[in-house]
Structure formats: structure tokens, C-alpha cells
């Protein structure tokens, strides 16, 4: 059956290939921030002569689109975006296994992402989970910046913390999975229940809490720390910290779409995106995650993994949809359903 599909897709690719340019095209769904996408498109085009048709969408929107298009794929490569949707796409057989020759140059966490998914996705950057806080609001209240998970339970943060709702946000799910791995499931949920008193809103979107911190709408957020660097560079009084007990991280990933019409070009893009030349474009676009190629220079503003205490985040176990559904359901009934403090 699958060979049939692949044959048909191949035939389709042949039938529909446009002879517009000798090198052909590659359609990229891009889930990082738009400047980065444009830079990557232009640079790859320069390096290879292959025309890049890039459309920027969030990772949730992209996987929704891949699912909707599964019968007749329109995209070739999915570049960037947090790792869980990529793992889920691999699980649902929406993406194609590929072993890039560049694999040897990558950090172990990026390679592990590849092996965990049966070769269907690979890490291109990583970002750690932590706290963002508004320094002006902290000073006004005379509170000390939170440095540990335990600090978030302090009374001075009553109704001052925002985190996203795991029902809708991958970021919030990473936070819960991190706490579970750090404290054990029972303790983690007790912690979340206690922290509930200090939470003023569980936002729908994962990046909203950091924006609320930037605009002074909340004092503290639970977010990816590199998002805080972006806000700080935009001129807002934002600083970040990673918890002293240890923290989890996301692995921004890249996958090739199953049945891609421009498979050869997709693989070329994939290989190129794992080179240091391609990976330093993130910093140029003011995005400060840690690149996955060991040889990529780390931008000075980027939060450094060496300064953090990272847990051994089990992407394979916590990226599975069954485990995610179970943890989110438990959060829903034990934490989300609690009355507003």
C-alpha cells in the first residue's frame, strides 16, 4: 500500500514538475520567526540555485496543514518549530525518514531526536525552559527575582505568574513534563497545585506570558528563555533565569514531508540547514537558541547551556501522544479545574 502511494506520489511529482528553473524548487514550511525564514530562503537559494518557496506558519498550524494535505502533499520540508509536533508527525507517518551525511557534526541531543523518531526528524536548535520577569515590576514590589522552581511558590508572587495552558500550548506541556521528570509525577502535581495560587492566568498561547511580562501585565512568566532575549532587545525591561533545580528544553526540529514532490531538493535543503553557515542565520535574525551543529558559533546574547542545569529530558517518552494526553488530562482535572484564587 505505501509503495503504491509512493509510486503514485512519484508519478505525480513527475507529472507536475515544472521546467521553470533547471535546479527546480523546494517548498518549505517554516515554523521559526519570519526574518529567519526569509534569510534561510535567500541564503539557500544563493548557495544552491534552487528556488525556495517559503511559507511561515506556527508549528501547530503546520502539522494541522500537513494532516489536511496528507493525501496530496504540497510542502517538501518542514523547517523549525518545537520538537513535539515533529515527533507527532513522525508518529502519524506524515514525514519521511532520512539520514543526512551531516549527522556526525551535530550535538548528541539533536541526533537523539533523530533516533527517537525513527530517523524522521532531526534537531536544528535547542532552547531551555525558564522564567522571564519584568525588572521594573520586581523593583516596585521589592521582590527578589525567582531563581528556582521553589521560588515561584513564595507569597510575594501571588497572582503575579503567568504560564500557558497545556491544552493549547506545547511550551506549557514542556514545563509540566520537566517538573514530572524533576520531582516525580505525584510531587510535580502537588507543586503545580500550590503554584496555582500564584498564577493569574493560563494563557492559550505559549509565547503570550513572555509578552505580558514585557508589557508589564504580569511580573513573572514560565517561558523559553530565548524568547526573553528577543523582548529585551526590543527595549522592554525583561530578564530571564533558568531554575536552579534543573530545567527541560525544547528541540527545534526539521522533517521532510512524506511524499514530497521535490524530494531531492528537500534533502539538499535538509543537509544545508544542518551546516554552520545555515545555522548562524538564526542569530542574524535575532533568535538566540542553541544551534545543533557543534561548529556553529554561539551568539554572545544567547543563554548558554553550559551555565544551566539541564535535566536529561526524555523526548521519546514525553513526546508520545498517549503520555501527553494522560498528563494533560491529569493537569486538567487536578489543576486547571481549581477555582481562581
Amino acid at each position: 500500500m505505501t509503495t503504491g502511494i509512493r509510486l503514485a506520489a512519484g508519478a505525480l511529482a513527475l507529472a507536475l514538475a515544472t521546467p521553470a528553473s533547471a535546479q527546480g524548487v523546494v517548498n518549505v514550511y517554516c515554523s521559526v520567526q519570519v526574518e529567519w525564514c526569509t534569510l534561510a530562503a535567500n541564503e539557500f537559494q544563493k548557495a544552491s540555485g534552487i528556488k525556495v518557496s517559503m511559507s511561515q506558519k506556527g508549528s501547530g498550524e503546520t502539522i494541522a496543514q500537513l494532516k489536511a494535505e496528507a493525501q496530496n502533499p504540497k510542502g517538501d520540508v518542514w523547517f523549525g518549530g518545537t520538537g513535539d509536533p515533529h515527533l507527532q508527525a513522525a508518529e502519524e507517518n506524515l514525514t519521511e525518514a532520512y539520514k543526512s551525511p551531516k549527522m556526525a557534526d551535530l550535538h548528541p541531543w539533536a541526533v537523539k531526536q533523530n533516533t527517537d523518531s525513527g530517523g524522521k526528524t532531526v534537531g536544528i536548535y535547542a532552547g531551555a525552559l525558564g522564567f522571564g520577569f519584568n525588572t521594573e515590576l520586581l523593583a516596585k514590589k521589592g521582590a527578589k527575582a525567582p531563581a528556582c522552581w521553589a521560588d515561584l511558590l513564595k507569597p510575594e508572587f501571588k497572582a503575579e505568574i503567568q504560564m500557558a495552558n497545556p491544552n493549547s500550548s506545547g511550551t506549557a506541556y514542556v514545563a509540566i513534563a520537566t517538573l514530572v521528570q524533576l520531582m516525580g509525577e505525584q510531587k510535580a502535581f502537588e507543586y503545580l497545585k500550590k503554584m496555582h495560587a500564584n498564577i493569574n492566568a493560563y494563557t492559550r498561547s505559549g509565547t503570550a506570558p513572555m509578552k505580558a511580562v514585557a508589557r508589564g501585565e504580569t511580573m513573572v512568566s514560565i517561558s523559553f528563555v530565548h524568547d526573553g532575549v528577543t523582548e529585551a532587545l526590543a527595549g522592554f525591561p525583561v530578564k530571564t533565569a533558568t531554575p536552579c533545580e534543573g530545567t527541560g528544553y525544547e528541540i527545534g526540529s526539521m522533517s521532510i514531508v512524506k511524499g514530497a514532490r521535490n524530494m531531492a531538493n528537500a534533502k539538499k535543503f535538509y543537509d544545508w540547514a544542518l551546516t554552520p553557515e545555515a545555522q548562524k542565520l538564526g542569530a542574524q535574525a535575532k533568535q538566540f537558541q542553541v544551534p545543533s551543529n557543534k561548529a556553529t558559533p554561539l551568539p554572545p546574547q544567547a543563554p548558554k547551556f553550559a551555565d544551566m542545569k539541564l535535566i536529561d529530558y526524555d523526548q521519546a517518552k514525553y513526546g508520545k501522544s498517549a503520555e501527553r494526553k494522560r498528563l494533560i488530562a491529569r493537569w486538567d482535572s487536578e489543576v486547571g479545574a481549581l477555582p481562581k484564587p
Binding site: G60, S168, G170, A172, Y173, T203, R204
Partner: peptide, 26 residues
């Protein structure tokens, strides 16, 4: 609702996140 809702959920945002969020449940 997405900008101002905070945690006041309505059907349209709930649907959006059922499609594009962590659940991906059509």
C-alpha cells in the same frame, strides 16, 4: 478572545487550539 481572553475560553479559541494546539484533535 485570543488577545484579551486570558483564561476565559470561548468555543472559537477552543476550536483553534484543538486544531493547532498540543492536542491536534480534529
Amino acid at each position: 478572545p485570543i488577545v484579551l481572553g486570558g483564561d476565559y475560553g470561548v468555543l472559537s479559541t477552543e476550536i483553534y487550539f484543538a486544531v493547532v494546539g498540543a492536542q491536534l484533535d480534529y
